[in-house]
Nucleic acid binder design. Structure first.
Lengths: 197, 197
DNA sequence: GTACTAACTGATCGATCAGTCAGTATTACG
DNA sequence: CGTAATACTGACTGATCGATCAGTTAGTAC
């Protein structure tokens, strides 16, 4: 196994903790102990707790953008509609294999900090722009090939993102076994955007 | 103006603070000072911070259930489809006039506590059951009168709830001016559930 | 080896905060 | 009025946590 730098180890540990327990409830001491280093070491690599958080978010951003770009490099779709449904399905899939990423993005602190911290805001914007544009592009393609009806691609992309995110939220809050809803979600998306023959 | 009890004052102040800054970032001292009472007074009415939070949540539950019940007492709809869209619109409307309620329900701490604290969990369940059943009932009525197509009422109700909640989330995170999306959201709901003629 | 730098650490500090307690004010009632 | 309960308060405590700092170790260059 490749020996990772301690700095990267800290970021990995912090990602899980920030995502799982939130910023305020995660202590630097806990990050240090789970990483297997002394408490003061974190402050050598990151000046403040906030700076650590931003590094974590940047790391998530990079990973997420890369994952989607890779997916569309390998997959190809006959119609825009199928491309859209593929994107939704991959979004759902990623949120299972990389739960921490999406938990972190859904944490309130992430958005509170973004309102105040320019670098943090930029990372968040990149993530959301990436997600929205994926849907938007699929919708535009679908309108050209006739698989998708006439609607505002931009606004519909936002609504689909909200819908997917809302389902993931329900699931992560253990309110309903949302896994059961995945196929129903895809069907609902299809009904929502497909061209009435 | 009716003189309110200090206990009710504390709950009102705490609702705004817990909703706006979260549980961990709200100090009992702040709640006390904004309510205009001494710090120790809160602990006379509520044994712990957690108990205060549960009282706040209970209060939100009561208000929310009442608001929806009142709405459907006064409004009547010609079709199930219109009833559904009315419910969605009222949900969006309430989330503006009673922002704190929905912010509180979306806070992670609310769900983390619910996983451990039975009374808290019960309050949350009442709220979500109320919201889901409103959509579910409208869908069922619509299927009977032919305005809504054949689909699982329960699952579709969950998806619509997730969609509305997702839009509100986008808005409260200042990511997009989601207000612009309200009419598009209603149109999308309609396309999703209406009976193909 | 020596010299220099980067990585890392243990001990500690100051601030914050939930919760306690012993006591004071306020109300209700005979 | 008296007295008893309820409502409220100021001063304090113990624990937690972010951050600092003086110092040690590991790595690299010569």
């Amino acid at each position: 196994m490749p020996k990772k730098s301690k700095k990267a180890d800290i970021i990995d540990t912090a990602t899980v903790l920030f995502a799982g327990k939130g910023f305020a409830n995660t202590s630097m001491a806990e990050v240090a102990s789970l990483t297997g280093i002394a408490g003061a070491t974190i402050f050598y690599h990151f000046k403040t707790k906030e700076e650590l958080f931003v590094s974590v978010l940047e790391n998530v951003k990079t990973g997420l953008v890369q994952a989607f770009s890779l997916y569309f490099q390998e997959e190809h779709f006959p119609t825009g509609l199928e491309r859209l449904l593929g994107a939704v399905a991959y979004h759902l899939h990623l949120s299972e294999t990389k739960k921490e990423w999406f938990l972190l993005l859904r944490r309130h602190y992430t958005h509170e900090l973004a309102a105040v911290h320019p670098a943090c805001r930029r990372h968040l914007e990149v993530v959301y722009t990436c997600l929205v544009e994926i849907f938007e592009k699929a919708l535009t393609i679908g309108q050209e090939d006739g698989s998708i009806g006439p609607l505002s691609a931009k606004k519909t992309a936002l609504i689909i993102l909200a819908m997917v995110d809302g389902i993931l939220q329900l699931e992560s809050n253990n309110l309903y076994n949302a896994g059961t809803l995945y196929s129903e979600l895809l069907a609902s998306c299809r009904r929502m955007v497909e061209n009435k023959q």
